[in-house]
Design a protein around this nucleic acid. Sequence first.
DNA 1: CGCACCATTGATATGGATCAATAACTGTGG
DNA 2: CCACAGTTATTGATCCATATCAATGGTGCG
Lengths: 264, 264
Amino acid sequence: MPGKKPPCIPSGTSSENINAPSQAVDTSNTTALFKGLSEENLQSLLSNSTVRSIESGREIVQHGDEVKHLYVIIEGSVKTLRASAEGEEATIRMLTAGDTFMDAVIFMGGTSPIRATAIKQSKLLMIPAHIIRQQVLRDGQLGENLLKIVSGHYKNAMQQIDSIVTKTPVERLGYYFLKLHMEQDPNSMEVELPFQKSMIANHLGMKPETFSRALKKLKSIGIDVDHERISLGDAYSLCHYCDPDTAFSCPKHGTPDCKPGGCN
Amino acid sequence: MPGKKPPCIPSGTSSENINAPSQAVDTSNTTALFKGLSEENLQSLLSNSTVRSIESGREIVQHGDEVKHLYVIIEGSVKTLRASAEGEEATIRMLTAGDTFMDAVIFMGGTSPIRATAIKQSKLLMIPAHIIRQQVLRDGQLGENLLKIVSGHYKNAMQQIDSIVTKTPVERLGYYFLKLHMEQDPNSMEVELPFQKSMIANHLGMKPETFSRALKKLKSIGIDVDHERISLGDAYSLCHYCDPDTAFSCPKHGTPDCKPGGCN
DNA sequence: CGCACCATTGATATGGATCAATAACTGTGG
DNA sequence: CCACAGTTATTGATCCATATCAATGGTGCG
């Protein structure tokens, strides 16, 4: 998935716990969830939705909660994670504006197996779960959108498993940078870390200390990190950490310089 | 998910690469994929499907393949996995009769990020991917079924991530046994390993040697393993490895003896 | 200005991987 | 029925990568 993320959704939603003004929505350039929905179907989703502001650090959904909404991030950041009894956390996803969460959970049955926490002051669109479930039966397009979204999550989860099991910390970090690079701007030589380092470290299944040392090793390959600013030595320096399915959507794929690592 | 698995699907499908006789299907007791589908919609899925036999060890889908079918296991076993360039494998799921695979992949876009391999002589029902995608737009029930299935996979993947990151090998094994116990028969004191140990080891993110040593440690808690037969010391010996969302669907949950580990 | 929080760096410990040898089991053919 | 090869599981010895522990430096905020 190259290119920039679409902005997000309703452009005029602001007030707290008030019905989202569904007529103010620009259907064309929007979250994957709403893609291709008819005006009518979109309306029946949004007319029941509410907008809520939440401050950084607050929990949105707790482990074990009954989940009553699907959330769309209008602005801010959220992470989803699993926490063990001993306080250890495993970050599943880290989300920004335009992303949805609890989209899969509302189809799992039972209570939430994950926690969701705001990691920045955020604004969330909340669509009642029962509305979603009801609309899925009526609107095949919505079903397809959700399937694509959830399948995407699943794909990421599989890559995460794979990373943690088969790769070293440095490789995981390189792979993460590569994906950032492609998401943000495949032509730029600069990438920006969208989250705190300790948070990324946890997401990659390592401790902050290990993360730090991994950064150091990358420096010797020409990838320098100054605070949240990553500068690539040359355009191909991350290629070593590529894998076949990332290569597939890489503009450099097939060029003579693309020959390294797992590249295929 | 307690209780036994539903048998599987078409009861009269046998011949190779021949249209599945859709009229021979018992809609009531079947795979989650077909649950609640109208006779007509079910028919339009099955009339285009084929059945294929495959011997143990053969690859069904390769990493990078374009996926043209959704598969339902009629009999046998299959594993899905990711393999790195250096030959390391990370097992994602291990499946038996009634399970589906490539259900999520056909909605991901791009080629397959995983490989699927038969681990026993197997018989598979193959439903063309384009039929599925097309039917999803028409049949909301099919969409819901798929969403539940894919969400379930995602949930398992999250638990797998969590296990590997926050738990020790012994804990992972205990957790795995617990889930087997609840799937197979929560009342029996015997559980059976459905797969080769080395395969389970890989699925749990450890080496066979580590698996073996973990078995030894469990023995000291009264869980004895003889070949593929696990016998539990007492009914609560696995409770230590429980987690909140597994507890939720446990018949012992709430009884005075349920108080250990992550149990909540 | 000083207190928190985060990142970095160094020193040490340890859990699981690796290497190696043996044992149990499976199937095959004489 | 037994000998043999091939596979899988177990067990022991060693090694190494990453966690852990500890101290310092940097940055932002009140």
